[in-house]
């Protein structure tokens, strides 16, 4: 395209009065190499526009992954609360049995202590009775 023509188009371009076709013509002129030095800045602009359009969205688009994520969380929280309840229940049970055993042990210790005291005292009594028997025997012998 002639330079004069390009200059005219560029003026229109700056005033935003070019059509898409005219802009494509400008784009072709400015991206194809030899550009008049006084129009160099347009080459930068159009080169940038063209280069930018090459950028693409490379990831795959998912339509509803969020939902499943949320659902997972929901189920996870349900499971967690059930677990918590269950563990509290088990823990309470365990604690109760532990407490009962502890109590039983205490009672057992007390009882066995008492029995021990009783048995030592009984032994004393037995000895006393034994000596008494001895005396009695001797006395009987003497008396006969």
């Amino acid at each position: 395209m002639e330079l004069a023509n390009i200059e005219k188009l560029v003026e229109k371009y700056l005033d935003a009065e070019t059509t898409l076709q005219e802009e494509t013509a400008l784009k072709n002129y400015f991206t194809e190499g030899s550009v008049a030095p006084h129009l160099q800045e347009y080459a930068y602009m159009f080169n940038y526009f063209v280069a930018t359009k090459d950028e693409t969205y490379t990831k795959t688009i998912q339509l509803e992954p969020k939902k499943s994520k949320r659902r997972n969380f929901k189920w996870l929280s349900v499971a967690a609360s059930v677990m918590l309840l269950f563990s509290v229940f088990i823990g309470k049970n365990q604690y109760d049995t532990y407490k009962q055993r502890k109590q039983a042990e205490e009672i057992y210790a007390q009882v066995s202590n008492g029995l021990k005291i009783l048995s030592t005292n009984l032994k004393k009594g037995e000895q006393a009775v034994a000596t008494l028997y001895k005396y009695q025997n001797k006395a009987n012998k003497v008396l006969k």
Partner: peptide, 30 residues
């Protein structure tokens, strides 16, 4: 989708943000 992505990137600057925005937009469209 590329046009959506490029517009998002123009406004949000970072590529990651633009990708998130594109994905989010498609959720909404769906």
């Amino acid at each position: 989708k590329d046009k959506v992505f490029r517009l998002a990137k123009r406004l949000l600057v970072s590529t990651e943000e633009a990708e998130d925005a594109t994905q989010e937009l498609y959720f909404k469209l769906w």
